[in-house]
Each structure stands twice: as C-alpha cells, then as structure tokens.
C-alpha cells in the first residue's frame, strides 16, 4: 500500500497554495484579523507560505469596541511577534460619522454595523482582497461560497452568480471597484483547526479555555459573557460558571459554552464529542434561518 498523506498536511498545503495565489494575483491585500483561532491559524499559515520572507499582507482588525480584552492583547502581541503591520478600523468612528445607527435594547449588537466599517476600510486602503478565516462548515450559506469570492463595487455578494472554480485554479480577475474575499480555510472544519493548533503548538487567547466567568444566560439558552456592553433582558439570569469561548468576536453576540476543557488537547476532545454546532452559541446567527446569507450579501465577513 502506498503511503497516504495526512489530511492536515493536505489542508495545510491547500491553504498555503491559496495564500500564495492571493499574494501574486490580488495585491494589495490584507488578512482580516479578529484575534480568534481561525485568523490566528491563518497568520501561522501565512508565515509558512512566505518563509523565509515576511508575510506580505498587513493584518486588518475591524474593532467593534466590544471585544474581549484578552483577544485585543493577544492581537497586539501577535502582530509585534510576527513583525506584521496591524491596521485597526473602529465601528465607533463609523457611528460617529453618522453612517450607521447603533442598535438599542438588551439584544443590541454592533455585529451588523461592522460591515460598513469593513467596506469603508477596504475602499480607503484600496484593497483588492480581504483574506478571511471563514470556513464552509460554519454555516450553510458559507458552504456555497467560492475560495476566491467576488464582491461587487458596492461590496455585495451574489450567491447565485458565482464564478465556476475548478481544480486549484483561482481566478483573481477584478473589474474596477470590485474586490475579492479569499478563504484559505474553506475546507477546514472546527475540529481540523483545533487538531492543527494542537499539532503545530499554536498559541491562542486564554478565553478559549475554561475559566471562571460571570455570564448572562438568555431566556433562549444562549450564554453570554457579562460585560458593560450586554444588558440582561427580561427572564435572563446572571450566573457564575466555568466556561470558555467557542468562537471569538463581538461580546454582544459571541456565546460562551460551559466547559472544563483547560488546554488544547481537552478542547480537541470536547470538539470531537460535542453535539452542538460551533455557531450555535452565536446570537447573530439566531436572528433568522438565513441570517448569515443576508449579512453576507451585504458584504459581511
């Protein structure tokens, strides 16, 4: 029997191939960096792809102003350690410019508002590509998206008119005003990411591991970290729990899960055994059955 290649090596090779194509076809480009495990993995892969040279993209963080401090600290340390330029654009500035209006009430979130800040940043920086850590297994609209995914001159995604994408030939041809979103981790699952983090000994923020935290349990079961940006609504309870983040993003919609997994090995084990989808704890996806498709059409990550 001839030797098979381990699937993590295959996924790594594919992601590196995509990052290199983006670097050649779509400069100037930036890596969308949230401080979450997917974008951290992306930076790790970019270092491999362009070794021994530097990563040829800056990191772009769209800051809702409602982040976990641990993720922000991690972001700054990572940029410094890899010698990569970090560009931060703030949703607060977009609000102050009167371009978007802040939501109100106990379920208010800046999640949707980010899209405007992101599209402004892409225009301001003249980016031809924004490279993201999105994965097809996350959500059913993402399951249909190409690796090189086109956005119109107004930042819109049209899921019904995507370019055929064959073999590993990625078409980065853009017309004036268009940009591309590039997803090198398209074929990775949540478990693949954690297995790779374990194998490569990649550092991730501490909030991914079990810690004692004050949380708000929404009446629909969602668990959110207690913060100045989240107010308990009617029927919600405040609890002190052992919990961890499964995704990292805006505190108003990033759910916590009760967990005792305190290191990467235990997170891998927990991820392999869980019966709940990764984004099940995300309040932003619960707004409707096609919430992700609707946001993506408007230009969301």
């Amino acid at each position: 029997m001839s030797p098979g290649v381990h699937f993590l090596d295959q996924l790594e090779a594919e992601a590196i191939h995509i990052l290199r194509e983006a670097a050649v076809q779509l400069q100037p480009a930036a890596v969308l960096f949230s401080g979450g495990k997917d974008s951290i993995t992306l930076v790790h892969l970019a270092r491999k792809a362009f070794w021994p040279g530097p990563i040829p993209f800056p990191l772009l963080h769209i800051d809702t102003g409602h982040n976990f401090q641990e993720a922000l600290d991690f972001r700054d340390a990572l940029a410094a350690r890899t010698g990569t330029e970090l560009i931060v654009r703030r949703v607060q500035d977009t609000i102050d410019q009167g371009k978007v209006k802040e939501e109100s009430g106990p379920y208010a979130s800046r999640n949707v508002l980010q899209t405007v800040t992101l599209l402004d940043a892409i225009a301001e920086l003249g980016l031809r590509a924004a490279i993201g850590g999105g994965r097809r297994d996350e959500e059913k609209a993402r399951a249909k998206e190409r690796v090189f995914s086109l956005r119109t001159d107004t930042g819109k995604w049209n899921p019904h008119d995507q370019r055929p994408e064959l073999w590993h030939l990625y078409n980065g041809f853009l017309r004036s005003g268009e940009h591309a979103r590039v997803f090198p981790l398209s074929n990775w699952t949540e478990l693949d990411i954690w297995s790779y983090i374990l194998r490569e000994q990649i550092e991730v923020p501490s909030i991914y591991f079990s810690h004692r935290r004050r949380c708000i349990r929404r009446s629909d079961g969602t668990l959110l970290a207690w913060s100045p940006y989240v107010r308990p609504g009617e029927g919600d309870r405040v609890e002190e729990l052992d919990a961890r983040c499964r995704t990292v993003g805006d505190m108003t919609c990033t759910g916590m899960v009760e967990s005792r997994a305190s290191d990467v090995q235990e997170v891998v084990r927990e991820t392999a055994a869980t019966r709940l989808a990764e984004r099940s704890s995300r309040a932003d996806d619960k707004r409707s059955d096609t919430a992700m498709e609707d946001r993506k059409r408007e230009g969301y990550f």
């Binding site: 097809r136 297994d137 059913k140 399951a143 249909k144 899921p159 995507q162 074929n187 699952t189």
Partner: peptide, 8 residues
C-alpha cells in the same frame, strides 16, 4: 439546489 454545496 442552485449551487455546489460543500459538506464535511
């Protein structure tokens, strides 16, 4: 079904 869907 309209477009190719990827599943894992």
């Amino acid at each position: 079904t309209i477009d190719v869907a990827y599943r894992y």
